[in-house]
C-alpha cells in the first residue's frame, strides 16, 4: 500500500517544485543571456576566464588602478567599486541587469551604458572584455 502511494507523492512534489523553476529573474533577460542567478564563467560565450585573468594581471588597461580585483596582484584601486562577487551581483554599474552580454558591453564601452560614468573606455577589445567578464564571473565570494 505504501509503495502504491509513492508515485502520487512524487508527482505532487514535482508539480510543486515546477513553480520554483520560473521566476521574475528571466524577465530581466533582454539580451538573450542567461539570467544573473545562473551566470557562470561558461555562460560568457567565447570567454575564457584564464585569458581574462591574464588581461587583468598584465595591466595593459590599468583596471587595477581603479578597482580592487580578487586574485589580481596589485589591483587595489579605490577610484571605482571593488569587484568582489561580480558573479553574484544583480546589476552592472547600478544600471544594467548583470548578464554576460551587459557586463561585456559595460567593460568595453561604459559610455554606451552611462555617458556620465567616471569609467572611461580603456581601449580594451570586445574579445578581451569577454574574457575579463568570464574571469569576473568566477568571483563569487565577498571579502
Amino acid at each position: 500500500m505504501a509503495r502504491r502511494g509513492m508515485p502520487i507523492l512524487a508527482a505532487a512534489l514535482s508539480w510543486a517544485l515546477a513553480g520554483c523553476g520560473e521566476g521574475p529573474a528571466t524577465a530581466n533577460n533582454t539580451t538573450g543571456d542567461l539570467p544573473r542567478s545562473h551566470a557562470d564563467p561558461q555562460a560568457v560565450a567565447g570567454g575564457d576566464a584564464a585569458r581574462g585573468r591574464a588581461v587583468l594581471a598584465g595591466g595593459t588597461y590599468g583596471c587595477g588602478a581603479c578597482h580592487a580585483i580578487p586574485g589580481i596582484d596589485g589591483a587595489r584601486g579605490t577610484v571605482g567599486p571593488p569587484l568582489h562577487a561580480m558573479g553574484l551581483r544583480a546589476y552592472v554599474a547600478g544600471r544594467l541587469p548583470n548578464t554576460p552580454g551587459n557586463l561585456v558591453t559595460w567593460i568595453e564601452n561604459p559610455r554606451l551604458v552611462d555617458p556620465r560614468s567616471a569609467m572611461p573606455a580603456t581601449g580594451i577589445t570586445r574579445a578581451e572584455a569577454t574574457d575579463v567578464a568570464a574571469y569576473l564571473y568566477t568571483l563569487r565570494t565577498l571579502p
Binding site: T60, G62, A65, G77, T78, V79, A118, P120, T122, G123
Partner: peptide, 15 residues
C-alpha cells in the same frame, strides 16, 4: 607606477 592609457590616466588624476 601604472601602464599608460585612458583608464590609468583617469585613475591617476582621481586618486
Amino acid at each position: 607606477t601604472l601602464p599608460n592609457g585612458v583608464g590609468p590616466l583617469a585613475a591617476w588624476i582621481a586618486d
